[in-house]
Design a protein around this nucleic acid. Structure first.
Lengths: 344, 344
DNA sequence: CTGTTAGCGCTTTCAA
DNA sequence: TTGAAAGCGCTAACAG
């Protein structure tokens, strides 16, 4: 337990503590001899530097904080895995701040945990802040990179949600669908409709000269279960019965496919379903989707954050990187069957 | 940036640094007056203690390390969310060590990251170690609690995997099934068959006087895709065609259900499927399963770890807590239809 | 290139 | 109950 310190290494190597520190950390110039001896001594003793001491002295903690509203959803767990891998390769730890609890937990994380100088930078995943929270965070001065959501004034990696949903919906329109439902969630912020997936759906529908039917828009949660419930409502009601569903995420879409099957409907013969994500399970469900290249987004975000850490605080500038999405056609979409009558 | 230190708080409160430290951390006795003043001054100044400095001085870091082989699988993400919530409530951060990369990343985590005195304790999720790795970890002396897997000599929260799989399979046997397939993965360790889900399956089958057909046992990966592929193989081959499938996890089971549907088979009329987990999606798929109460397991594990941190190092003793599983019957299982002929 | 010397911000004896 | 003082283990000027 009385762990071996840098002092022990220095003694064994016959060097000063400072030289060993330089040799092992790679900061400052050291002779090859000194480096070799230091490394040898460290290895002999099984020396592992204390992060805390190093952090305290240097102000750098080699730790990134990641704030997530969920872990148990594909987008988030994929971002976590990817970012973790990228960061670990550069010697960074990843401390996870899960906002899943209530308002109190959230406040605690935002006001306390993140300020304790434990992290060098922060990856904010789909984090929506009010003005006060945002101001608080910015004041701290730690570099932040957002992914899956935008915080004004902060570096961001994202896709064009509006365009992604429009693309998905346009695919349905191009196949000849006219009664297209949307399953999604409420957008946040003032310009929600202009920037969100719901907005993209509406835009594509309108552009096709189709009237928007509010009853065909089901806004709710994010989970597969929510998608299942929404689709069941939509598809079971003979007055609504869409020929296609444009879902705001693959999880919602998979729920919709399952609901359709449970109603005895064939996908895509009776109803087409398209999602957004590029979910790993898309293959199994034959899901046509708009791939948002999540791993690429996460890699970019982590890389960007790392780069900002390397820059002087005052040279850091908010960067916006947008990843291009891609339509991935599988077997959950096709042209609608000719309908006898359509009840509006 | 020039952040406010405990010294600033002490000055404003008109107290010594030592007293403020005691007041704010709750260690040692302080008068009510001193406590109130310290807290007030801290609030006024927006003081947040530096974890690093506190850690260095006290040896406690208020940080738990969690080692996971996956994030993007239900069991793991659920454990992460649950443990994170429990730990945060006690003021602990959670640093995630994802072992997803290759052998090199794994070694790095096990030999470096975990030894840097950044964590007070460790939650090891389904971590399988060889003897050398185990010895290394134990030598460090940080309290460890395992979940979803056992490390000899280390505190563990788990279920009885063997019994869970036997229960699932017995349920099929009781319904009258005789051709029961198993989809799972290779067990590790010497006593694999005696302690794993595959073993439990085999035991139930044998106990029913049914001969074990190796071709009905599909061992492979852990994902829904793997379950899908395995089931498709099993169900498409007329020489094999089981009337029921006992899957080692709900994800495999969901894959199996999807495969069955794609083959035009009705679940449960044509084939029954049972899983193990209590997956959130079980409802949507009507999946009969053996609920292993993951959130309860995770809560126990986190609580147990916290308790061990409170004990003197030499009073700590490995504890084994076993959570009871429960059969949850939904609509993916039923009695087999009378068969004309069975080709063996 | 290397050693000496101060701390980093906090906790914790030890006296008072 | 409180304060003074001595570190925790490391890094970062500053000389040499």
């Amino acid at each position: 337990m009385a762990s071996v310190t840098i002092k022990d290494v220095a003694e064994r190597a016959g060097l000063s503590v400072a030289t060993v520190s330089r040799a092992l950390s790679g900061r400052g110039h050291v002779s090859d001899a000194a480096r070799t001896q230091s490394e040898q001594a460290a290895r002999d003793l099984g020396y592992v530097a204390s992060y805390n001491a190093a952090s305290l002295a240097s102000g750098r903690s080699k730790n990134i904080g990641m704030v997530v509203p969920w872990v148990n959803r594909w987008f988030f767990s994929t971002v976590i895995e990817t970012a973790s891998t990228v960061l670990a390769a550069e010697g960074y730890d990843l401390t996870l701040y899960y906002l899943g609890g209530g308002k109190r937990e959230r406040d605690l994380v935002l006001s306390d945990f993140l300020l304790r100088k434990r992290i060098d930078g922060m990856l904010a995943v789909a984090l929506e802040l009010d003005d006060a929270e945002r101001a608080d965070l910015l004041r701290v001065g730690t570099p932040i990179v957002c992914i899956g959501g935008v915080i004004p004034g902060v570096s961001t990696v994202s896709i064009d949600d509006f365009a992604a949903a429009r693309l998905a919906t346009e695919h349905l329109v191009a196949l000849g669908h006219r009664r297209i439902a949307h399953i999604g969630w409420e957008g946040a912020g003032d310009f929600a409709l202009a920037t969100t997936r719901q907005g993209g759906y509406a835009d594509a529908v309108r552009a096709a000269g189709i009237e928007i039917v509010p009853a065909l828009i089901a806004l709710g949660g994010f989970t597969t279960q929510d998608g299942y419930a929404a689709a069941k409502r939509l598809l079971a009601d003979p007055r609504l019965r869409p020929t296609a569903i444009s879902a705001a995420s693959d999880e919602l879409a998979i729920g919709a496919i399952t609901a359709a099957r449970d109603l005895g409907l064939d996908v895509p013969r009776d109803v087409s379903v398209v999602g957004i994500d590029g979910h790993d399970l898309g293959d199994v469900f034959g899901l046509t989707t708009v791939d948002q290249h999540v791993r690429k987004q996460a890699t970019r975000a982590a890389t960007l954050l790392l780069r900002q850490l390397g820059q002087e605080p005052d040279t850091r500038e908010p960067v916006h990187a947008e990843v291009t999405v891609e339509l991935l056609v599988r077997s959950s979409t096709m042209a609608p069957r000719p309908q006898r009558s359509v009840t509006g």
